[in-house]
Computed example of a mutant assay.
Amino acid sequence: MTTVSARVKPAAGIRRPSHVIADSLTMLHRNLLHMVRYPGLSVFTIVGPVVILLLFVFVFGGTLGAGLPGVNATGGRAAYLAYVVPGILLITIAGTAGGTATTVSMDMTTGVTARFRTMAISRAAVLAGHVLGNAIQALIAVALVLGVGLLIGFRPTASPLEWMAAAGLLALVAYAISWLGVAMGMQAKSVETASNLPLILTLLPLLGSGFVPTESMPAGLAWFALYQPFTPFIETIRGLLLGTPLGTNPVFALGWCVVIAFLGYSWSRVIYERKSVR
């Protein structure tokens, strides 16, 4: 009698967890190399927020700072620097989504992603590589922008534990925004238009509490600013670094991270699977 092996070959596209992790690390390494080979996108994500920081602090800071609660005119610029830095850090993270969308769109339109779909690579790993690479890039950009803020006089009062909590939240926001950037890049019809949709993310900190208190806005805009994702992100970072009241902002910040990450992941997987069957 011929003995038949009981081992069954796994279905195509199904990978063991260890293989998924290994594939994700390979894709991460590929995307980190892109940062080195195409530094223009990385430099822009740093230079843009730094220019905004310097512009608002040294051009508008004296006037805007004097209008902050409990601040006199002579201390306006220093007070505004402390107020605006958390918003600039979140703008830095939001700005990296445009680079992610462009990179993903390049892979989609040049056939690289189609080639990956024919190889023994986890489909989740292809997307995860982009996400992890962008999250790392975002955190590097945040560290550099924060360094500029410290050089021009930003003086946070956070304890080591509060610094760790702030860094953890920034990492979560970067991870969530990266998933959304990947989905937007896959949705784009061309590389030239890939960075258009992520511009919405860059505008949200401007329409939140990043630059002025929400109380100073008209009623309708103040309502939007209060309940959009970036206001609890900014207020939580501001509270951790500067000791302002946190309230329920950390809860909403974590909740928004989960919602954005889930939305970006689901959206990108739907597009990836749809294009895989063509």
Rank of each mutant, 00 (worst) to 15 (best):
A222F: 09
S216M: 11
G185I: 07
G153F: 09
P218H: 05
S5Q: 08
V259T: 12
I152F: 01
R15Q: 13
V71I: 09
G264T: 03
W223H: 10
A219R: 12
V126Y: 02
T102Q: 12
V126K: 01
F252C: 00
V59A: 12
S159C: 06
L201R: 05
V191F: 03
I234S: 00
T2G: 04
G220I: 06
V131P: 09
V50W: 01
D23L: 08
L180W: 07
Y265S: 14
H34K: 11
S24P: 05
L127E: 09
A188R: 04
T100V: 12
A73Q: 13
L197T: 11
P10W: 00
V142W: 05
A174F: 03
A222W: 09
T3Q: 14
Y38I: 15
I93T: 07
G70A: 08
L240E: 07
A158F: 02
P229Q: 08
G99M: 05
S276N: 10
G76P: 12
T231A: 05
I260T: 06
G62W: 01
A73E: 14
I140D: 10
S105M: 03
V104Q: 02
W179F: 11
L197Q: 10
A94P: 11
I260W: 01
M108R: 14
A120I: 07
N72R: 09
G61Y: 00
I200F: 14
T102H: 06
V258Y: 05
A174S: 09
G95C: 06
I46F: 09
L54V: 06
R7T: 15
V212I: 13
A183W: 06
G208I: 01
H130C: 07
L263M: 12
Y265K: 15
A22D: 12
L201V: 06
V126I: 14
L197D: 01
T63M: 08
R115T: 04
P86T: 03
V270D: 13
L263Q: 03
G75L: 09
I177F: 13
A194L: 04
M119A: 15
T236L: 01
G181F: 01
V258T: 07
N249Q: 12
A120T: 13
L53V: 04
G168Y: 10
S105C: 11
R37M: 14
R115A: 05
T118P: 00
A167V: 12
L226N: 14
T214E: 10
V277P: 01
R115P: 00
S178N: 05
I21L: 15
F252Q: 02
A167L: 13
T100A: 11
L246K: 00
G87M: 01
A94Q: 11
A11N: 10
R117P: 00
A222L: 07
G133I: 07
I46M: 10
P69T: 08
G87H: 00
G61F: 00
S5T: 12
G168E: 03
M1L: 05
P10G: 04
A158G: 04
S190N: 12
T63C: 00
L41P: 10
A101H: 08
M106R: 14
G48Q: 13
